[in-house]
C-alpha cells in the first residue's frame, strides 16, 4: 500500500491539539533530546482515546507531525492490529496527513511494542508509546525516590535485580522492556519492545521519541546515540533466537510471532513485522507454509 491522503476533519486544529499545547510538548521533546534518556515531565492532555492506549505517543506525534509527513502506525509490529488502525485513522481524520504501512515510505512511525526490522534512516522519526516510563518503578514505587536515584545516577537497585535473576535462574529473566543505558548516563525503559529490538536503538540514524501520557513523561534518544543494554561482563546481553525461519517469507534474524494452528500442539512462526514479511514475499521469498504466490 502506498501513501494515501485523507480529507481533514473540521472543527479541530491540525492534528487535534491546539498550538499552545503543541508548543508545550515540543519544548519537552527538545529538552528530552538535549538530555538523552532523561524523563521530562510534561502537562499531558486528556485525549479522546483511553490512557494506556497510546495517549503519550499520540501527543508526541501530534506535536511533531506536519502536512507533508507520511505516518505509519504499528502495534505488535503490525499495521493491522485494532489500536494501530484506530490511531492511524485518528491522524488521517484530524490532520489529513498521508498514511502508509510501508516502513520505508514513512517519515513518522508510531509504535507500540516493536521496532521495524528494516533499519530506520535519518529522515525518519520513531515515536514509542510508553506505559511505564520509569525503569526503576517496580523496584521503587515512589516517584520522589526514583527521581533522586536518577539524579545521583544510582542504579545499584537495577544491577542487584539483574544479578539476582542470574543467581536464581542462571540468566537475566527480563525479556521485554529490558533496561538500557543511554549516552553513558541515564538508565531508560525502551518501552515494552522485546529485548530483541534493543540493539536497533544503538546509534540509530532515526530520532527516537518516547511518550507516556498517563505518567506525563516524554524522553528521547537523539540520532547516533549510544544505547547499551545493561549486562555483566560474564553474562553479556543476548537477544532472543528462533529455531525456525518465518513460515511465510523464510526470513531469519527477525522477531517471530507464534500462531496456534490447532488444539493438538500445531504451531507456526511468522514475522511479527507484517510489512517486512509482505515486502519479502513480494520479492519472491517463500516460507514452508506460504504455498504459491499469495
Amino acid at each position: 500500500m502506498s501513501a494515501v491522503a485523507a480529507p481533514q476533519a473540521s472543527g479541530y486544529n491540525f492534528a487535534y491539539l491546539d498550538e499552545q499545547t503543541k508548543r508545550m510538548i515540543r519544548r519537552a521533546i527538545l529538552k528530552g533530546i538535549a538530555i538523552p534518556g532523561y524523563q521530562v515531565p510534561f502537562a499531558s492532555r486528556e485525549m479522546p482515546m483511553p490512557y494506556g492506549w497510546g495517549t503519550g505517543g499520540v501527543q508526541v506525534t501530534a506535536a511533531i507531525i506536519g502536512p507533508d509527513d507520511v505516518l505509519k502506525v504499528i502495534d505488535q509490529g503490525s499495521d493491522d492490529t485494532t489500536n494501530a488502525v484506530s490511531i492511524r485513522k485518528f491522524f488521517a481524520k484530524t490532520a489529513g496527513v498521508a498514511t502508509t504501512t510501508e516502513t520505508k515510505a514513512a517519515t513518522i512511525i508510531q509504535t507500540r511494542h516493536r521496532i521495524p526490522e528494516r533499519t530506520l534512516t535519518e529522515k525518519q522519526t520513531i515515536v514509542y508509546q510508553v506505559p511505564i516510563p520509569e525503569p526503576l518503578r517496580f523496584l521503587e514505587p515512589r516517584e520522589t525516590e526514583t527521581r533522586k536515584l536518577h539524579a545521583l545516577a544510582d542504579y545499584g537497585l537495577m544491577h542487584v535485580k539483574l544479578y539476582e535473576d542470574i543467581a536464581r535462574h542462571g540468566h537475566i529473566a527480563t525479556t521485554y522492556d529490558y533496561p538500557v543505558e543511554v549516552a553513558d548516563r541515564y538508565v531508560m525503559n525502551p518501552s515494552p519492545t522485546p529485548k530483541f529490538d534493543n540493539p536497533k536503538m544503538h546509534m540509530s540514524e532515526a530520532l527516537q521519541l518516547f511518550g507516556a501520557g498517563r505518567e506525563k513523561r516524554i524522553y528521547a534518544v537523539p540520532p547516533f546515540t549510544k544505547v547499551r543494554s545493561l549486562d555483566f561482563e560474564d553474562h553479556p546481553f543476548e537477544v532472543q533466537k528462533f529455531d525456525k525461519p518465518c513460515a511465510l517469507c523464510a526470513a531469519t534474524n527477525v522477531y517471530l510471532d507464534e500462531v496456534v494452528l490447532d488444539d493438538r500442539g500445531g504451531r507456526m512462526f511468522v514475522c511479527s513485522d507484517s510489512d517486512h514479511c509482505e515486502e519479502r514475499r513480494a520479492e519472491g521469498h517463500r516460507g514452508e507454509l506460504s504455498g504459491e504466490a499469495a
Binding site: 509490529g77 510471532d257 507464534e258 511479527s272
Partner: peptide, 12 residues
C-alpha cells in the same frame, strides 16, 4: 489496556 494485543511480549 490489557485488552490490547500483547503477543510480542507474551512471545518473549
Amino acid at each position: 489496556h490489557l485488552k490490547l494485543p500483547h503477543y510480542v511480549d507474551f512471545q518473549a
